[in-house]
Design a protein around this nucleic acid. Structure first.
Lengths: 216, 216
DNA sequence: TAGATTGTTAATCGATTAACAATC
DNA sequence: TAGATTGTTAATCGATTAACAATC
């Protein structure tokens, strides 16, 4: 049931699920066993109708006058995202951004655990960054297979992004979180999720230019 | 004319503009003075029709059989995003992620220059990170006003995100690039662009769960 | 009962995709 | 001329918003 619900969920809804999850977990610490869509919407600056639809998409049914059961919602959202089980990931490219992601404690709440890092810089290999050991990229394939790694985080320079992605795919990795500006080519069945800083900045710039108008 | 074009541009189009810009700049180094939408689309893994529409939205007219003039496209895109002039920005929160952004050289190509960083950690204040000096947050308001800063980059912990955003707004900052999970409340006229790692990871997780199906 | 809240159906909007005419 | 490519109009799709019925 919940699987079918998750299968038909729109991308926009999926993107909002972590917002709900965060807020709901905070509520759980308090006394509230139920929360209404309107309250949730107000706390997150979202449209109440949108929230109600998203919550409905999780398969959890609310009760009029009371709202939605907080605990059931948390479980349903974690389930839809696969965040109830921890997924191990490899990170390739231990530069500035790679180090930042290795040091980010929040992934724990998102079912993600970075269990090894990779680079080609001799000074890094063998060291530990935020408790995660750094290996040479040439060891990636062997380790990924042995550990059944599903997710690869790509924080290398744009120039070698495709080459590393190829190695990841060959090593059996099924999902690539791409922080490089490169447009990756992968075989069908492999999922690439792009974290596009430039695109985000473009939207900000454009909206600012719009707001400012021609007058500068 | 180009202003009007930029005003009516959809968000999806704006998000793709940096992709085109990057590819076009690479082409400029080669001999090509013209590029066809189809070629551009193939290089970026995009739908050709989509690309043609996006390029049309910049106001640049292509010529059949030849394609679009590369140099004019670059100029038009830079113009639409305001990336032809460098915009100075402040960064608040010199932790892992803040340091990563301070060390990222690519912003230069996106019309963004981080001219100062802020934190409350005494060990950081007065130091330089990637050539950018770190100040105490209490100095932000004064400096932002004096330097007419328009963009603030928010890389603090979620707990104090709103407080820092309030300071930014009060200091005359008009656009906030929000890397925290907080849902910021700002007055009308101030633009907030969220860089939502959790949302992105959620999409990846969901697509992986979808691809895997129930069988795990 | 009354009223707040969910759930559902319809309307609107924007983005993508398709088809085809215009043009060099 | 012929053909490749742009430009435009229409169709489809998904997301958001609106309106209202159902329910505790």
């Amino acid at each position: 049931m919940s699987e079918q619900a998750s299968r038909s969920m729109g991308v926009a809804t999926v993107r909002r699920l972590p917002l709900y999850l965060r807020e709901l977990r905070a509520r759980l610490d308090q006394e509230d066993a139920y929360i209404s869509g309107a309250v949730l919407a107000q706390g997150l600056n979202l449209d109440p109708i949108s929230v109600r639809k998203d919550l409905a998409a999780t398969g959890v049914v609310g009760t009029p006058r009371k709202g939605f059961p907080v605990e059931a919602l948390i479980e349903a959202i974690e389930n839809a995202l696969g965040w109830n089980n921890v997924t191990d990931a490899f990170l390739v490219g231990a530069g500035h951004l790679g180090k930042a992601l290795l040091g980010y404690p929040g992934f724990r709440h998102h079912g993600l655990s970075i269990v090894a890092a990779f680079d080609v810089d001799r000074r890094l290999i063998g060291s530990k960054i935020s408790g995660v050991k750094v290996f040479h990229v040439r060891d990636l394939s062997r380790l990924a297979r042995r550990m059944h790694i599903q997710i690869g985080i790509l924080t290398v320079g744009g120039a070698c992004a495709q080459a590393v992605a190829d190695v990841m795919v060959a090593a059996g990795i099924r999902g690539i979180w791409n922080f490089t500006p490169a447009s990756l080519r992968v075989p069908a069945g492999v999922v690439v999720q792009r974290e596009d800083l430039a695109a985000s900045l473009a939207v900000l710039s454009h909206r600012l230019a719009e707001a400012t108008g021609g007058a500068r």
